[in-house]
Design a protein around this nucleic acid. Sequence first.
DNA 1: CTTGACACGGTAATAATTATCAACTACTTT
DNA 2: AAAGTAGTTGATAATTATTACCGTGTCAAG
Lengths: 218, 218
Amino acid sequence: MQKLLRMTHQREVILDEIKKSSTHPTADELYERIKKKLPRISLATVYRNLEIMSESGLINKLEISGRQKRFDWDLDQHDHIYCIQCHRVDNIDLADKKDVALPADQNRGYKVAGCRVEFYGICPKCSARSQKKQKGESKKMACKSKCGSKELSEKQREILEALAKCEDACGSKDIAAATSLEPKQVSCQITALKKKGLVDSPVRCKYAITGDGKDALS
Amino acid sequence: MQKLLRMTHQREVILDEIKKSSTHPTADELYERIKKKLPRISLATVYRNLEIMSESGLINKLEISGRQKRFDWDLDQHDHIYCIQCHRVDNIDLADKKDVALPADQNRGYKVAGCRVEFYGICPKCSARSQKKQKGESKKMACKSKCGSKELSEKQREILEALAKCEDACGSKDIAAATSLEPKQVSCQITALKKKGLVDSPVRCKYAITGDGKDALS
DNA sequence: CTTGACACGGTAATAATTATCAACTACTTT
DNA sequence: AAAGTAGTTGATAATTATTACCGTGTCAAG
């Protein structure tokens, strides 16, 4: 029934790379690592083979809440804990998992195929990091993604540079004057910059650049 | 700390629509329903407000394995079971959930914020459906989504009719223009139609109706 | 040595979501 | 009430992660 699968060089290298990882790498992470050994490999090949290998039971595909899929060489039953900030995933071993059985009257007619228990929280690294810079409230922005909206548009950069020059907080009119942008555009961009945590508003309607904002400029 | 949020008409309607649903609708599903009441609303507004409302605790955002996010008006702690075929999500109530505590020696340094228990299986509708047509090999396609069936949705019929009128293959943009559907919807539906064999693609990115497709129209 | 199934790399397409932005509306201050 | 600021909206572009497509290449069986 199970089709024999050809063990190509690419597949060997992919499998090898997964077996080496203690974390649960994403397709993308694996691709980056594998490229060093097989510079000509295609991202599509990595995805394709991860899918094929997980279907044929050589590896496990993890579906952790709402993010990229991750792959695991450990085929034994175990559960996971993940970091809501950096999204790393670690293994956990739940001894009393069998207690979490679905009462028969609760299955709503489903043919139950399995159960996943997922813990979530903040990993050691992230809690260390957030202690360092707990001054900025930036809960969401903490490490939402590698480049998630960190990039500045031309207008935003212009505004930030203008703000960097001012010693104290200034109103959007001042900024508009300093940047040759229209006032309307300024207030719109200020909002965006505030969301990114690069600008804050110490007084109503006055804005100043934050530490992060200065960092973003350099 | 929590900013008061302005209850606009759009937000009212969105909230209202969620409260009405017994299922756990996706942003897209909500958009489709809301459009009937507010034809001018933008999909972005729906996404934006779902995010804002879940952040401010008016609704709950569900992160079920590897698919679209879903939204829930029920703020009480409860868990879910989902169908691995049609991806519907139902509530379950786990009395003995507290037994699934993470042993202190297992937390791997995480500050644990919570735990999610997810059951999965095949929902009553899907198991009924797969019994009926177990002849067809189609393992994956069995009932991948509502458009897995032989029935034509309104949109699909519209697209097929448009294609029937064209002599030669045309791109999805042309179809979108001819049908007054949004291009996104068109390409999604085209894919479904291709899988059903009612449409094929003689040239990359160009589509034409097949014999079966013509039959399906009559 | 042909044949055909499978696999590869490159790239376009897709799906879901998020970002940007100009126009607008609702609040606050005067 | 006027003026200005903050927050919202619709339209659309962009992004992220993944999958589909396609022409070419490889390998093993007949």
